[in-house]
Design a protein around this nucleic acid. Sequence first.
DNA 1: ATGCCTAACTAAGTTAGA
Length: 261
Amino acid sequence: MTQLKIATFNINGIRSRLPALLEWLAEEQPDIACLQELKAPDESFPVDVLSEAGYGACWHGQKAWNGVAILVRGGQPIESRRGLPGDPQDTHSRYLEAAVQGLVIGCLYLPNGNPQPGPKFDYKLAWFERLLGHAQQLLDSGHPVVLAGDFNAVPTDDDIYNPRSWRKDALLQPQTRACWQRLLAQGWTDALRTRYPDERVYTFWDYFRQHWKTNSGLRIDHLLLSPSLVPRLRDAGVDRWVRDRPHASDHAPAWVTLETA
DNA sequence: ATGCCTAACTAAGTTAGA
């Protein structure tokens, strides 16, 4: 049975993490990889190196911060959208969408929102509202869609090692979680939680206080499936070994495998 | 209440991440 492996990975700097990215691509061979936090302008995107590694790409970078990309193994993503609708003033590179092998892939990097309350948290919630609007449009289109990325949202207290010291963090706020729940209520399926209904699953461990060594993680990188894809979900997981490498990103790749139609 | 650690930008100190 042929399967498609779709991954999302906040690489935290594509230039400083390029060896790690190439190692992961070679080892896990995702068919589609959504990347966040490129932290590089468009002209610095390593398109040639990735091509040599067998991946076609589309990307939307910016200087120093943010930046998203979609990689396709042995193919080329057909870019269908860059940036969410609803705010022409928004200059952050946080959303990229492409058609790949009959799927629509939305790659997103939702604002962190700290400190809260404040303008950054307001921006996070406004961005989430725009995502909700666009996500509904995608569902209405009837296409099979995967929304993958760093949502900067810890859905429940079961998605964090210990919520106590994070209570005031933007990632755990009731408003953030309410937006997440509204997304699920539209009809999206949280693939990782569906695959592991009762287990602790983390995708991020910060650099502080030996949080990786002690497995003090958060689940904030998510893959959402539109309804028609749910019966095709075969497996999901986190490539934790990537987080254990020297000079690793603070995130590990999360992935799903889908049965091909 | 804040720093812890790490990278980008830029040139030693700030900003941002989550």
